[in-house]
Amino acid sequence: MTEHPLLQVSDITKTYGGRIGCADVSFDLWPGEVMGIVGESGSGKSTLLSCMAGHLAPDSGRVIFDTRSDGPRDVLAMNEPERRMLARTDWAFVHQNPRDGLRMGVSAGGNVGERLMAVGARHYGSIREQAVDWLGRVEISSDRIDDRPRQFSGGMQQRLQIARNLVTGPRLVFMDEPTGGLDVSVQARLLDLLRGLVRQMGLSAVIVTHDLAVVRLLADRLMVMKDGRVVEQGLTDQVLDDPQHAYTQLLVSSVLQV
């Protein structure tokens, strides 16, 4: 089981015309591991995430995922139905803006149930039961199940998005700035929740963020990107406490100490 990495990314390059989105990024992600990717705006971290998740087609490189049924397979060479199936069973994608990841006109229960129905669940009672269960796990009270996400606060929307993504028991979660746009106390609760879920479900995750506190709390390993390239990587505490690259040193020293 653990002889293969869950995800092997090799030499991902994506250019936008003459500009570099990200270049020659490679790493392995092992089951149960959380990888943080930090960097300033425009450093290519979101591009990299989109390439890995199949939202963008990279110019070159391979993304090999250890599928449940067929073992390691190149995700980029899969056909669209297979990739969609993967994206709604073994994978999850948490967007920065919950509006991108939720259906705003559909009730919370419907949002959580969508992935279940997409993979063939056809029993209303059990779909609803799982929706209630998941809303509970992300600390949304079950009497809000028929409310629409519009009526939720930003933090609740983000938690709902997480519930919606994790309901099918994925093994790999991509997160793009999961705490962006939330105030600090809400961020803290969300991080607490995420950390609990990741540990409890044994999830692997790739978290893109510019917030070093988030990776300090969640990530086992850290990759620092600058201008589309990885400038430094290693264990989170090691990179943050003893940064080697000039940019990482700048990044770490730029954090305000309260």
Partner: peptide, 16 residues
């Protein structure tokens, strides 16, 4: 892609 889960979301909303 025969991706019809959304149709059931509509029926789910009806029942809810």
């Amino acid at each position: 892609l025969e991706d019809y889960g959304l149709m059931h979301v509509k029926l789910y909303e009806d029942i809810a």
